[in-house]
């Protein structure tokens, strides 16, 4: 067993364990954290495939951003687990059917007929100075530039739509534009009034 094979089996075992714990952990926060572990381990596996860009981006995007927001939501929810588990047996037949269907589909596609070792040759290991990032960038911006730009536009539309749906101005908000605040001059707020000095009346002193 070579070093990389050993690493692969260790990572795969951690990944499977983490994946199982995601669906079996009773505490949703624990489940979310196991999902983080699963992502991180998957990134390690991709690293073994010499796909360092995808591996790092998986950590950067999913672990660093998506799962943080996930945890945010999960931590703030007050989830009643017993209520969630109520319909377990009712849903089991249909869920079982769907998962068996998924498994059959995957077996059809990923079976050894198409992805066996005799069909898919082992990829050549790249030299040390090979940059997966550069290769990927070149492909994305040349061969697949239309698909890439299209995906970017769709994402942009989704961002704009999400903001447009949630953006609303509250009438009772006391928000002040900082630019306005900075622009304020003394004379806008303060008026010095010249007054005659008034002689103190002896009767008002106690008031």
């Amino acid at each position: 067993m070579t070093y990389t094979t050993a690493i692969f089996y260790i990572f795969a075992a951690i990944l499977v364990f983490a994946g199982l714990r995601v669906i079996t952990a009773r505490n949703p926060v624990h489940a979310a954290l196991f999902l983080v572990l699963a992502f991180f381990t998957a990134a390690g596996l991709w690293m073994l495939l010499e796909a360092e860009f995808l591996a790092i981006v998986l950590v950067l995007v999913y672990v660093g951003a998506v799962m943080v927001l996930f945890l945010f939501v999960v931590m703030m929810l007050d989830i009643n687990l017993d209520k969630l588990r109520e319909g377990f047996w009712d849903y089991l037949p249909i869920a079982g059917f769907v998962s068996v269907l998924l498994m059959i589909e995957m077996a059809l596609i990923l079976g050894s007929r198409h992805f066996g070792l005799d069909v898919m040759a082992t990829p050549e290991p790249h030299p040390a100075d090979y940059s997966n990032t550069k290769e990927l960038g070149r492909l994305l911006y040349t061969d697949y530039v239309y698909a890439f730009e299209l995906a970017a536009v769709i994402l942009l539309v989704a961002i704009v739509a999400a903001i447009a749906l949630t953006l609303r101005r509250r009438k009772d908000s006391k928000y002040i534009d900082p630019a306005e605040q900075v622009k304020v001059k003394r004379n806008d707020r303060l008026r010095i009034v010249k007054m005659q000095a008034v002689k103190k009346q002896s009767g008002e002193e106690g008031a």
Partner: peptide, 10 residues
């Protein structure tokens, strides 16, 4: 490593 900057960010 080649992707040092990405690694730091991640």
């Amino acid at each position: 490593i080649n992707a040092g900057l990405l690694y730091v960010m991640a």
